[in-house]
Amino acid sequence: MKVETYLFGAVEISPEKVINFPSGLVGFEESKRYTLVHEDDKAEAASFTLQSLDDPNLAFQIVDPATLGFNYELLLSDAENALLQSPATEDIAVMQLLFKKEVDGKAVISPNLRAPLVINTRARVGLQKVMESLRPNITLSNLSSAV
């Protein structure tokens, strides 16, 4: 199917590349179908665009938390596990939404630490796991120091 996007123009999307978020995303509950888009000339993408298929003007930048030094260990409720179709651990991808905010008059890009996306990559279904507080089971690594 051909989809018009805000950032990439017309893009051809195969139906098996659609990711369903049955509950939508926080603030965007009406958009339930998404796909991942990235520039083709990049060998390995560090970030992706999560493009809504329900609203061509809606897109989010997302990243693997590991690229930012985060490691999530999330506990899913029975309802969340059922929504994700009881995935195997190796079929789960956790991603962070990036957002832009103004700090001292400058635009700063930050990850949304409290509401990561959890995606069953095999079933192509996901949810946004909203956490009221950060728990100590999130580990940070210092990416600037030698390993």
Score class of each variant (00 low, 15 high):
T49K: 07
L68M: 11
L68S: 02
I19G: 07
L143W: 06
A45R: 07
A115W: 08
L143T: 05
M131E: 11
E16F: 05
A10P: 06
T5V: 09
S141Q: 14
G27W: 02
S145D: 13
L36W: 08
D91H: 13
R124C: 06
E102K: 12
V94C: 01
F28D: 07
V94M: 03
G69S: 02
A59C: 03
K2N: 14
A107I: 15
E4A: 09
S47F: 14
L75T: 15
G126H: 08
L36N: 04
L97C: 09
V118P: 03
L76A: 01
P15R: 06
L68P: 01
S14D: 12
F70Y: 09
E73N: 11
A45K: 07
K129D: 05
P136S: 13
G24R: 11
V26G: 01
A93W: 11
E44I: 15
L75A: 12
A115Q: 09
G27F: 01
P22N: 10
L75S: 14
E30I: 09
E29A: 12
S110G: 03
L97W: 01
V94A: 00
Q85P: 04
D40F: 03
E16A: 10
T121N: 08
Q85T: 06
V37C: 13
L75C: 04
S141N: 14
K17S: 15
D104H: 11
A10E: 15
S47W: 10
K17Y: 11
Q51K: 02
E80A: 00
V63E: 02
R33A: 06
A46R: 12
Q96T: 10
A107W: 07
A10S: 13
V118Y: 02
N142M: 12
I92T: 01
F48Y: 15
L143Q: 13
L58H: 01
N120L: 11
E102R: 12
P65A: 03
T89E: 13
L97T: 13
I62T: 07
S133R: 15
V130R: 01
R33H: 15
T139G: 08
A79W: 03
D54T: 04
S141V: 10
S110D: 11
A93I: 08
E29L: 06
S145R: 15
F48M: 13
M131V: 05
I119M: 05
E132P: 03
T139A: 12
F28P: 03
K100F: 11
P22C: 05
D104C: 05
L113Q: 06
I138W: 03
K32Y: 06
A88V: 08
V3A: 15
Q51Y: 03
Y34A: 09
L113I: 11
L53T: 00
I19Y: 09
Q51D: 00
A93Y: 07
L113G: 04
S52F: 00
P65T: 00
P87G: 05
D54C: 00
N57G: 09
A43V: 14
D64F: 04
V118A: 00
S77C: 08
G24H: 09
D91N: 14
